[in-house]
C-alpha cells in the first residue's frame, strides 16, 4: 500500500479513482454489449474501456496500470480482436457469403439478438480498447535518447 503512494497523483485523486475506475470499465462493457440495440457499439465501448485504464495510469503511475494490463497482453488482445473479427466474417462462408449474418437474428430490442453483430462488437472493442491504451502507453513512455543517458 505504501509503495503505491509514492508515485502518481495525490491521495484524493487516488481514492476517487479507486471508486470510479471499476464503474467506467463496467460502463464500457455495457456499451459494447448493448451496441446492437442502443447507441454505442464496439468502437465507443472500446474507447471507454481504454479510458478506464488511462485513468488508472494517470492516477497511480505507469507501474500499477501496466501490472493490470502488460504491454505484451495489449498487443496480443489487439491482434486477437482483428483476427476474431476476420474469423466472424469468414465464418459467414458457412452460409455462402463473406460477412453473412449466419446466426439467427432473434427478436429485435433484446440483448441476445442480431446474430453476429454483438460478437463483432466484442471483437472490435478488444481491438480498439487494447489499441488505444497501447497508443497512450507508447506515446507516454517514449524515452528520448538524451533521457536514456541520464
Amino acid at each position: 500500500m505504501s509503495k503505491e503512494h509514492d508515485k502518481g497523483m495525490s491521495l484524493i485523486v487516488k481514492v476517487i479513482t479507486r471508486l470510479t475506475v471499476g464503474l467506467i470499465l463496467l460502463f464500457g462493457i455495457y456499451i459494447v454489449l448493448h451496441g446492437h440495440v442502443s447507441p454505442g457499439g464496439g468502437f465507443a465501448g472500446g474507447v471507454i474501456i481504454a479510458l478506464s485504464f488511462v485513468h488508472l495510469m494517470l492516477a497511480y503511475g505507469k507501474d500499477v496500470a501496466l501490472k493490470k494490463l502488460p504491454k505484451t497482453a495489449m498487443s496480443f488482445f489487439e491482434s486477437m480482436g482483428a483476427i476474431l473479427f476476420l474469423s466472424i466474417a469468414l465464418l459467414g462462408f458457412t452460409g455462402g457469403y463473406f460477412f453473412l449474418n449466419f446466426i439467427s437474428k432473434g427478436e429485435p430490442f433484446r440483448l441476445f439478438s442480431a446474430g453476429t453483430i454483438p460478437l463483432s462488437n466484442i471483437a472490435i472493442s478488444l481491438k480498439v480498447g487494447a489499441g488505444l491504451f497501447a497508443i497512450f502507453v507508447v506515446l507516454v513512455l517514449l524515452k528520448f535518447e538524451w533521457e536514456k543517458k541520464e
Binding site: S79, M80, A82, L86, A89, F98, F99
Partner: peptide, 22 residues
C-alpha cells in the same frame, strides 16, 4: 467466393504475423 479472399488472406497474414511472429 474467391473475391473476398484477396482482402481476407492478406489481413489474416498480417495479424497472425503480429501475434506469433514476436
Amino acid at each position: 467466393n474467391i473475391l473476398p479472399l484477396f482482402v481476407g488472406i492478406s489481413l489474416a497474414g498480417a495479424f497472425l504475423t503480429s501475434i506469433v511472429g514476436k
